[in-house]
C-alpha cells in the first residue's frame, strides 16, 4: 500500500481548501490569463523565431520542463537550474494558433520561451511554445479516419532525421502548406503520399503522438 507522505497531506489540505486561492484570484485586480486573450485567433507561421546569433539566443531564449504553473508565470527547470518565465496577456502562445494554444500547459511539459531578459535572469515572454517539435522526414503508413465528430482525421508515420519514427495526427484545423498556399485540412483535405519527405511542426501529446499544427508538403 502506498504511504501517505507529509507532502501528500499538504497537497490534500491545499486541494481541500482550494476555494481560498480561487477566491483570491477572483478578487485580483490584475488581469488574469484568460485563454481567449492568451491565445489570439490570428493564424501565423508557428516556426520558432529565427536564431541568428548565439548571444542573442542566450539572452532571449529559454527552454526547460515546467515545474510550477501559475496564471502569471511558469517556473521551468533546465541545466541552469530553475528559471522563471513571466507570462501575460501580451504573450503570444503558439504564435496565435488558438486550437493548439487552448491545450494549455501542464507540469512536466517542455516549455520554450522567447522574450526579454530581466536583471534577475527571469524572462518576460513575448512568445511561448509547449512541447513544440519540428520533424523532417519520410512519410509512411497513412490512414484516414472517417468517423464523424472525431478530432483526429488522419494519421501517418514520419521517419524524422534525428528522432526516428514518429506517429503524427492530423486534426481538422491542421494547416496544410503545399508550397503554393496554405489552408486548414478541413477546407482542403490533402495528405502527403507514401515516401514523400515533408516537414511537420506540431505538439507532442501525452500519449507520445504528435499533433500536427502545420504540415509543409513540399521540401
Amino acid at each position: 500500500m502506498t504511504k501517505f507522505s507529509r507532502r501528500d497531506f499538504l497537497k490534500f489540505t491545499s486541494a481541500f481548501l482550494a476555494f481560498i486561492p480561487a477566491i483570491r484570484n477572483l478578487l485580483a485586480l490584475e488581469t488574469p490569463i484568460e485563454d481567449s486573450k492568451l491565445y489570439p485567433t490570428e493564424l501565423q507561421d508557428p516556426t520558432p523565431p529565427p536564431l541568428t546569433d548565439e548571444d542573442l539566443i542566450a539572452e532571449k531564449y529559454e527552454s526547460g520542463f515546467a515545474k510550477i504553473i501559475t496564471s502569471d508565470h511558469i517556473i521551468i527547470e533546465n541545466y541552469k537550474g530553475q528559471v522563471i518565465l513571466h507570462i501575460s496577456n501580451k504573450t503570444d502562445v503558439w504564435d496565435g494558433i488558438k486550437w493548439v494554444g487552448d491545450l494549455g500547459a501542464d507540469v512536466g511539459d517542455e516549455i520554450v520561451g522567447w522574450g526579454i531578459r530581466n536583471p534577475d535572469n527571469s524572462l518576460t515572454c513575448e512568445k511561448l511554445y509547449v512541447n513544440i517539435v519540428n520533424y523532417i522526414g519520410e512519410v509512411s503508413e497513412i490512414s484516414t479516419n472517417s468517423r464523424r465528430n472525431d478530432n483526429i482525421v488522419a494519421k501517418f508515420v514520419q521517419n524524422d532525421r534525428f528522432r526516428g519514427r514518429q506517429s503524427i495526427s492530423i486534426a481538422p484545423h491542421t494547416m496544410i502548406d503545399d508550397g503554393q498556399s496554405r489552408k486548414l485540412y478541413k477546407e482542403r483535405p490533402v495528405l502527403p503520399k507514401n515516401s514523400d519527405i515533408i516537414q511537420v511542426i506540431g505538439r507532442v501529446m501525452k500519449d507520445g503522438t504528435t499533433l500536427a499544427a502545420v504540415v509543409y508538403l513540399s521540401q
Binding site: N25, L26, D106
Partner: peptide
C-alpha cells in the same frame, strides 16, 4: 489523460488531476 488540470476552478486556479 494523466497530468491534466482538473478544471474545478476553470482557468482561475489550476489543480492537477491526480490521485490526491
Amino acid at each position: 489523460a494523466k497530468g491534466t488540470n482538473c478544471g474545478c476552478f476553470g482557468n482561475i486556479y489550476k489543480i492537477q488531476n491526480d490521485k490526491i
